[in-house]
Simulated scan of single mutants.
Amino acid sequence: MKKNFYLRSALSVILLMHSVISVFSGDVNNFGRLYLDTIGFRPFGLYLAWAVKLIHLFSVFLIWSDRYIKAVSICNMFILILGIYFIHWQNGWYVVGGGTNGIEFNVLLICCFLQLIFTKQEEKCCS
């Protein structure tokens, strides 16, 4: 069994759902054009939105193949930190309950990626 099996499973489901659903629903295009472009990223908003979703999608496969774990984690943490700054910070801490759309979920995901970085990876080779 892979180290951090449950952590990898949870991150994979979250990243898959966050990327695949928004691609098929068209939300990724709306996020790029209707949000990112309007806050100063024009004309790159659409491309940035797609880059985020593709990073999430490819991260799933890299996490399970034990490749580029540090790079995957750093890229996703960077995206999550930018999400906190541009979207969630103004809404406070809570995602639900004491508020809505807050930073708590992003903070938890950042900690999960930190755990992946700092867990010693399995040896690849056998004698």
Rank of each mutant, 00 (worst) to 15 (best):
I55C: 10
I110K: 02
V96Y: 04
K120S: 10
I110S: 02
I87E: 09
L36S: 05
C75S: 10
N91L: 12
S19A: 14
Q121L: 07
G32T: 12
E122N: 13
I69W: 00
C111E: 01
L80R: 06
R33P: 00
A71R: 01
E104L: 02
S65F: 13
A10T: 14
F44L: 15
V28T: 13
K120L: 08
K53M: 14
L15V: 10
P43A: 11
Y94M: 10
N29Y: 12
L57I: 14
A10F: 13
V23F: 15
L36N: 04
L109M: 06
L108A: 15
L34C: 11
Y94I: 06
L48D: 05
S22W: 11
G45Q: 14
G102K: 07
M17K: 07
T119C: 03
L114T: 01
L109F: 00
F41H: 03
I14N: 07
S12F: 05
V52C: 09
L46I: 15
M17R: 06
S9K: 04
N101T: 06
I14K: 08
L46P: 03
L82H: 10
F58C: 10
C75D: 11
A71P: 01
D37C: 05
S25F: 11
I81P: 02
F31P: 00
G99Y: 08
S59Y: 08
G92N: 05
Y68S: 08
F86P: 01
F31R: 12
L7P: 00
L54H: 04
V60C: 05
D66Y: 09
L36H: 10
D66S: 09
F41N: 03
W64L: 10
L11K: 02
F24I: 15
G45H: 13
E123Q: 07
C126S: 11
F61D: 01
W50I: 07
K2D: 13
I63K: 00
S73N: 09
C75G: 03
Q90R: 09
M77F: 03
R42V: 12
N76Y: 04
H18S: 11
I87W: 06
L62R: 05
K3C: 02
V60P: 11
S12C: 06
K70F: 10
H18Y: 13
M77N: 07
N76A: 04
V107R: 04
T100N: 13
D66W: 04
V52N: 06
L15G: 07
